[in-house]
Computed example of a mutant assay.
Amino acid sequence: MPFIEESDLLELHKDIDKAQIINERLLDQIKYKNKELKRSKLQRNIFAAITAVFLIGTLAITSFTVGLTSSAQQQSADYVNFSIDSLEVIKGRLDNLKQQNEELSLVREFYLAKKFLEKETIYSVQVKAFVDKNLSLASESLTNTMFVKTNPFYAYSVGNFETLEEAQKFRRELVAMGFNDAFVASYRDGKRIAIEDAQ
């Protein structure tokens, strides 16, 4: 029967607490980003409505102006110049809205992936733990890293794997690179669980 030192057991409990705190931080960050997405969507809709009203007003004024012009040549020249300018402005606005929509789609896909990972059992390789030091080693936008707070530790894990075998293979590669203390951890519903419970 395997034997575990009391100090190792205490370290494991600390790692678990640390993972829970980091998960709470991630959930808070997701809520904040969701609020930002809703605000951006509202601003985009308001901008689109204002643009539509502006275009309708511009077309109405243009139609009215064209109707009052007595000369057919003057009428034709003004209409063509105004239409070309209007089309360029509209095209610029449409391009800007398309770019914003693509950026919002990427952010949405990121959060959908995060929600999926929280619902499934995943494996990750923990490479470092810090005591009482909130140190972020990677950008929060990287979806393949985890920074988990477990009182009083902060754990840094790399990789999100569907199977234990994949995570163990990645751990062996990290150990070969010099991360001798790296070990596989499992998570379900955004919480750390024992490897035995994950299978």
Rank of each mutant, 00 (worst) to 15 (best):
R25V: 06
E120T: 11
R93T: 07
D28C: 04
Q99H: 07
E36K: 15
E103I: 08
L112G: 02
V53N: 02
A60G: 07
V80I: 15
V125Y: 00
K98C: 02
A48R: 13
Y79Q: 12
Q75A: 10
Q29G: 05
E5Q: 12
A48E: 08
I21S: 01
L104W: 03
Y79A: 15
I21K: 06
Q75T: 07
K35E: 14
A19K: 03
T58F: 01
K98S: 08
S63P: 00
K18A: 10
I30G: 02
S76F: 14
T121M: 03
E5V: 04
F110Y: 08
E120D: 05
F110T: 08
Q20F: 03
S71D: 15
V66W: 02
K38D: 12
N101R: 09
L59S: 12
N23I: 00
S71F: 01
E24C: 02
V89C: 04
A19P: 00
L37H: 13
D28H: 08
F116Y: 08
Y32F: 11
Q75H: 04
T62V: 06
H13V: 06
K18M: 03
E5M: 10
S63R: 08
L87T: 14
I84K: 09
L27I: 11
E103K: 10
E6S: 11
I56L: 14
Q20E: 08
E88M: 09
L104F: 04
I61S: 09
T121C: 06
L68N: 14
E11Y: 07
E24H: 06
F47R: 14
L68W: 08
V107P: 01
L97I: 08
R25F: 02
K14P: 00
D8W: 05
K119V: 05
K31W: 07
L68R: 13
T51S: 10
I4S: 09
E118R: 11
E24A: 06
L68F: 12
K14T: 03
T65Y: 02
A49I: 14
D95N: 07
I22Y: 03
F110R: 13
L59H: 07
E24S: 04
Q43L: 15
H13I: 07
A72K: 15
N45A: 13
